[in-house]
Structures are given as C-alpha cells and as structure tokens.
Amino acid sequence: MVPVSVVIITKNEAEMIGRSITMLRQLTDDIIVVDNDSTDHTVDISMENGCRVYQKSWDGYGANKNKGIALARYNWILSLDADEIPDAALLTSINQLKLDDCNTVYDIPFKAYYGNKPINFGNWGRDHHIRLFNRTQVKWSEPPVHETLVMPQNMRVQKLNGHLHHYSVKNVQEHEAKIVHYARLSALKYLQSGKKASLVKLYLAPLFHFVKAYVFLLGFLDGKEGWNIARMAFKNTWLKYYYLHKAKQNPILKKNFYEAPVMAYEFKANAHSE
C-alpha cells in the first residue's frame, strides 16, 4: 500500500459510505471519517470497516476537512466526500505513484450520476478536481461553501487515470434542496467578502449559466437529467444573489444571516419552483 491517508467528511451517508470504504481499503490502512452528527448508521458502518471516526463540531466543509487532515497518519492525503467512490483504475493509478515530490498534486477525473444515470455532458460531464496532495504544502480554504485548495503557485499538477464516481443526487427533490442550501451558503460567503447583487448578477448571470450548461456544453444530450441540471444551475445562481440582495437591504436579515446562515430565510426547497 502507498503511504496515503483518506479523509472523508460525512453526514448521514450510510447508503454510500460502505461502498466507498470497501474500495479504499485496497489503497490504504488509514481512513479518517469526520462525522457531523449523523443520525443513521454512518458511524457504525465506518467503525465496523476499520475507519478512525471523529465526531467533530461543524465549522464548515473546508474546516472539517482540515480537521481530518490534521489527524492523518500520512502526509499524503486523498480527500473525498462520502458520495464519491473510486474505481479500480484510479486505485491502480494511485498505487503506482512514487509520491516522492511534495510539490506535486494529483488531478482526478470525476464521473457524475443523477440517480443511477451517468452524466456525460454539461458541467457535470467534464468535472475533475485535485484531491490527492501533500498536507505539508496544501490545505483547504474555509469559507462557508465552495472550499478550494490553498497551495503554492509553483505546484505541479499531474492527471491520474481512472475516476471518482460521484453520486451527486438521487432525484429532483434532493437536487433542489441542495441548490437552496448551497445558495444560502454562497450568499453568506458573498456577504462576508463585500460582493454586491447587481442587476446583471440577478438576471443575466442565471440565464448565462443555463445556456452554457444546456446548449454550449451539450447538456441537452443527457435528456431530462441534463435539463434538470441546467435548470438548477439557473436557479442556484439566481437564488444566491437574491438572498444576498435581501440581506443587504435588511439589517435584521443581515444579522440573522451571519448568526444562522442556513436558517436565515424561511424558504422551502420548492418555494421558488418554476
């Protein structure tokens, strides 16, 4: 086995976590699960499969990933979400690495699924991310959402063979609920950075994201799933700037937004259905 630690953040992932761990056991003897108060069997499944499980307070996606990285046995980190499963080709690719240069990071292709349907076009069909890195050089940023890797500019990026299979959403209802949740967190991130909700951002940006995903990136070839992905890209863009606009207009909402970003607005997942 290569000297790699796997770090997974979880929240009620009992349905998927076992499949991921089974594959990851072929790579490493060190799997760290940072759990956010799961109420299903996520923790039990993880512990039964030999993972080291830590139930930490939730300080954000990047912050909890960094907590797991600090607990790892090895400096080389494979950072995953619980709905991401490596395939055999990816594990072989990682097992063949020398991992002797801490200034190299490894970019992994993703294969996304809508329910059980693979998505081949649109934004989801061309997804890839750096997920394997050395913690002495790299860490996660810690905004409310859309964390990114912070690393020196001279890092060398090497692409790996194989895929992380990302089971993004089960159905339209789950997709819409996620869109609302992430839109709120994005609005908080923008509020903290002083970003403004201009008319262009409110009305033209959502349309641009829809057309890009559905037309330019051929999302229509994925059928109804491609339509839903493009539609939700429109909705997410509009919602995050709408929430930001409302928070900036109302000092009380702005205060609540900082104190409880997920609950700052009483919108249901279907409140803005089209």
Score class of each variant (00 low, 15 high):
Y54Q: 01
A88H: 10
S93Q: 08
I85A: 10
N64T: 10
C51G: 02
G60C: 00
W76T: 11
N75Q: 09
A72C: 10
N49I: 09
K67T: 14
N64C: 12
D81Y: 05
V53A: 04
D59L: 13
R52T: 00
A88Y: 12
D87N: 13
A89K: 14
P86G: 03
S79A: 14
T92C: 11
E84V: 02
D81K: 04
E84G: 03
G60N: 00
D83Q: 07
W58T: 01
G60R: 02
G68R: 05
T92L: 06
N66D: 14
L80M: 15
L91S: 06
A82T: 12
K67C: 11
P86K: 03
C51A: 06
T92M: 12
E48A: 14
G50Y: 09
P86D: 04
C51P: 02
L78W: 11
P86T: 08
Y54H: 13
G68D: 02
I77L: 06
L78H: 03
A88P: 00
S57M: 12
A89S: 14
A72W: 03
N64R: 05
G62I: 07
G62S: 10
G62Y: 03
E84Q: 11
A89C: 11
I69M: 06
I77G: 05
K56L: 13
L80H: 08
W58C: 07
E48F: 08
W76V: 05
S79N: 12
L91K: 04
A63N: 13
R52Q: 13
Q55P: 01
K67S: 11
K65S: 03
K67R: 13
K56G: 12
D83F: 07
N75L: 05
Y54D: 10
R73F: 05
N49W: 03
Y74C: 05
I85R: 02
K65L: 15
R52P: 00
L78Q: 03
L90K: 03
K65C: 12
A88C: 06
D59S: 13
I77E: 01
S57K: 15
N75K: 11
G62W: 08
N64Y: 07
K65R: 15
G68L: 01
T92V: 07
D81M: 06
Y74M: 00
S93R: 01
A82H: 10
R52S: 11
C51E: 01
R73N: 11
K65F: 15
G68E: 02
Y61G: 02
W76K: 05
Y74S: 00
P86C: 01
R73P: 04
E48Y: 10
C51F: 05
A82Q: 10
S93K: 05
N64V: 06
Y54T: 07
K65D: 00
K56A: 15
A72V: 08
Y74E: 05
S79M: 06
W58V: 01
I69Y: 02
N75S: 12
W76L: 01
D83L: 00
S93M: 00
